[in-house]
Design a protein around this nucleic acid. Structure first.
Lengths: 190, 190
DNA sequence: CACAAAGTAGACAAATCGGTCTACAAAATA
DNA sequence: TATTTTGTAGACCGATTTGTCTACTTTGTG
């Protein structure tokens, strides 16, 4: 038998990503999942735990996608460029792995759950830390002094967050290319 | 008599900014505003129109704050730096004008209302256009060729959006200083 | 085969949602 | 002074919220 728990998580993620957490009710999720309410509550004893599950689900997909996008480049510079080219494909709905673009799930969820001590907010924070760590791995390979490593990593992260937000709010599908141009200019200075 | 309409808008904004639109009900707003439900619906015939009102209210405050932060600088470069120093004060809850930091209201609201054709989403977009226009005014004063003007403006906007998002999601209160450092590096290259 | 785990549909509960309405009071304005 | 606008409290509406529960069926495993 198919894994109902997985189906519920995937369906919930799709709906949450499109409409936001508070805008999607349990009844909509079970209807879309074609699952009984009891089944959902058997696997997830509350909506909050289901939200956490969707965050873990998306975290896995996103990090895998990112690693794959940056791998197999012949230099760390090209790997960073490849990240923004991948973001560009995402914004333009050409990423099969990430699906249609509704902004960054973690940013959007964190905006709905701002309390720093909540489990949901911490899952969002944790995801962003891992993304930063991945970027930092490549920046470390650049032939630059240690003082600059954190600076470059921070800037890449800021440009990344900035272009995701701009693509969402401004519906500006060129935001990733703008960010890549800024990155390239920056890398010339080091 | 005090202007009830204004009180309702201000109270609604405060609650929406803290908790998000979908997480705040009309009953909570009237209770906090100390106003009858009929009074609210007399001034705003739907919750959506009230949301629009809070967006206009915040738009006015934010643009005034931004203009004031960048004015009276002795050079356009200093004006751009001043913007990020002002953002830094905001993130660290030292801005009286903007109040406690709960992220950018327009980004957060746009994340909850993603449909590009909705009035709420368009109000968020419009605000961001005005902010960009303000930044562009200063970039125009830099002694650079026309090709670079849009590039610099785009990059400043990306860094600004990036640091606001980072300050919110990562609870990183130094994000504006990171963005300013990146800006300064960038300005050295032109 | 027996039994536990995982599934079904959907009624139900208590609270809350956005929004309407009555009936009346106060305040501003012509 | 007369009239209109703006205000009050809160009952009420139908829909929806998260979550519980009953009664029963299917499925996988020891």
């Amino acid at each position: 038998m198919v894994d109902k728990k997985q189906i519920i998580t995937q369906t919930a993620f799709k709906l949450f990503a499109q409409k936001g957490i508070h805008a999607v009710g349990i009844n909509e999720i079970i209807k879309e999942s074609k699952v009984a309410k009891k089944t959902l509550y058997h696997h997830f004893s509350s909506k909050e735990l289901l939200v956490i599950s969707t965050l873990e689900y998306r975290d896995d997909i996103f990090l895998t996608w990112m690693k794959q996008a940056m791998a197999k480049q012949t230099s760390p510079t090209l790997a960073l460029s490849a990240l923004f080219k991948a973001l560009d494909r995402w914004f333009n709905d050409k990423s099969v792995t990430l699906g249609a673009f509704y902004g960054c799930f973690f940013i959007n969820v964190a905006a709905e759950f701002k309390q720093q001590n909540s489990d949901i907010n911490q899952a969002c924070q944790q995801h962003k830390k891992q993304v930063r760590s991945l970027i930092n791995n490549y920046v470390n390979k650049l032939q630059i002094d240690n003082d600059n490593i954190d600076f470059i990593t921070d800037t890449v992260c800021l440009l990344k967050e900035g272009c995701i937000t701009t693509a969402l709010v401004q519906h500006d599908k060129s935001a990733a290319r703008q960010a890549e141009a800024a990155l390239n200019k920056l890398l010339l200075t080091i």
